[in-house]
Structures are given as C-alpha cells and as structure tokens.
Design a protein around this nucleic acid. Structure first.
Lengths: 107, 107
DNA sequence: TTGATACATTGACAACTATCTATATATGTG
DNA sequence: CACATATATAGATAGTTGTCAATGTATCAA
C-alpha cells in the first residue's frame, strides 16, 4: 500500500518548530518574517520547515510582493485527520461504522 | 510548551512498518510471532517497532507465557487523535467551538 | 542603479532512526 | 536437565533530518 506518502505527510508534524508554526497559524495567515520573530531559528531553517508543511498540504503559501503569507489549509487539515484516523483507530464495542466508537473522540 | 512529548508520540506513526502494524491490529490483538509473519522484517526489528508503538500508548502489550499479545489501545488512540487535533486544526467559518468546523472532518 | 528587505538554495555537519547480526533472557517441552 | 520457541537487548551501520553559514534570487524604494 501507499504507506510511504502517508509517512511523509505525518512527518510534517514530527518537529517541535513545525508544531509551533501550526499553532501560530491557527488564527489566520502570517508572513514568514513574522513567524521568524516567534521562533528561535534562522531564516533558512524556517524556509525549510515551511516547505515541509506546504508539501504536506497542511499549510498553503501565498506570495504577495516580497512577502510569503502562510495559512492553514482547511482541506489539507481535514484530509490529514482523516488519514490519521485510518491508522489510529480500533474496533471497540461502539463500532467504527456507526460513529459511536471511542476512536471518534477528539475528532 | 511540551512539544517534545507530542513529537515523540507522532513519530510513532512515521514508519511504514508501524503503519502496517496499526492496520494489522485493527481487528483485535495479535501475538508478535504472527505480526512477524506479516511483515518482511526481522524479529529484533519488530521488537523495536512494538516498543515504540507501546511507548506512544497507541498499542498495549500483554504477556502470556512466552507470547506477547499486542492490541490497539482505545484510550491511547483517542488521546492521540485529540492531540493531533490541537495542531491539525484551523479557524474556519463553522468555528471550532460548535463542532461545525471543517476540521471536524474525519474525526 | 544602488541598496535594503524577504525569501530560497546550497553545502556541511551533528543527531537521530531503521535495520541487521549476534547474543541474551524467558518460557515451555521432552 | 537439555532443547526449542518467543521475545528482548546490544552493537554496528547506512540513511535521514534539523540546523546553520554562506550565497542566490526577487521585490521594492530612494
């Protein structure tokens, strides 16, 4: 199966700085230079992380003049969570089909 | 914030073999030797992966004689999805509080 | 055009990870 | 006890990843 692509996408969230970036973007788009002020990393490192987040489709970038505005992708986030749900799930009494399974928690 | 612990847990799902294991356990517990037959890896490598999955609380192990039976942890899975949801989320029109946000998809 | 700003790319390096072989431990069987 | 089976641990190694300094590219203003 195509586990490789899923692994690649999940890896987008396996870095402390990238988690911080996801939180930083939660209330709307920000440009790179603003993110840079919030994270104790250099500009090339931020560029590296933004590329990974965009490649995972969790984040989208919009270029405006010399600025890059980044924002959470609602579609990407939804697809991500759905994908995670295919692996982080179980068959408990409620059943997954009915939506009553404990795995529906935090959905 | 404690991103480190979250990163460690998310890393549990960033390996193709571990994703395959999560799927293999989805319909009930299996002992290590059965998993070993389904995955083209050596026994020490399986042991390594099971340790990581158990450390992440996505899987629990039960020792019975010389066998180790592994199964999905419903609580661990629920906590994992909830944790993922704190990072893979957005503020779109529906709003996160009401549960109508697009980020509720695949929950 | 010159200079400043925002961002991307390159190359190097340390840290981490998945994998294997070899070996150890534990359990059950004759 | 000796032996087989199931699993864990140790050590080695190749590949990956996050980071930085240095440099390149693009945009805008004076």
């Amino acid at each position: 199966m195509g586990f490789r692509e899923d692994v690649r996408k999940i890896k987008a969230l396996t870095d402390e700085n990238r988690l911080a970036i996801m939180l930083a973007l939660q209330h709307g788009e920000k440009c790179g230079c603003v993110l840079l002020e919030e994270l104790n990393i250099t500009q090339p490192t931020l560029s590296h992380h933004m590329r990974i987040l965009c490649d995972s489709d969790l984040v989208v970038g919009r270029k405006d003049g010399k600025w890059m505005y980044y924002s959470i992708s609602p579609e990407g986030v939804a697809a991500f969570r759905e994908m995670i749900g295919t692996y982080a799930r179980c068959d408990c009494e409620g059943g997954n089909e009915t939506g009553n399974c404990c795995c529906s928690v935090g959905a």
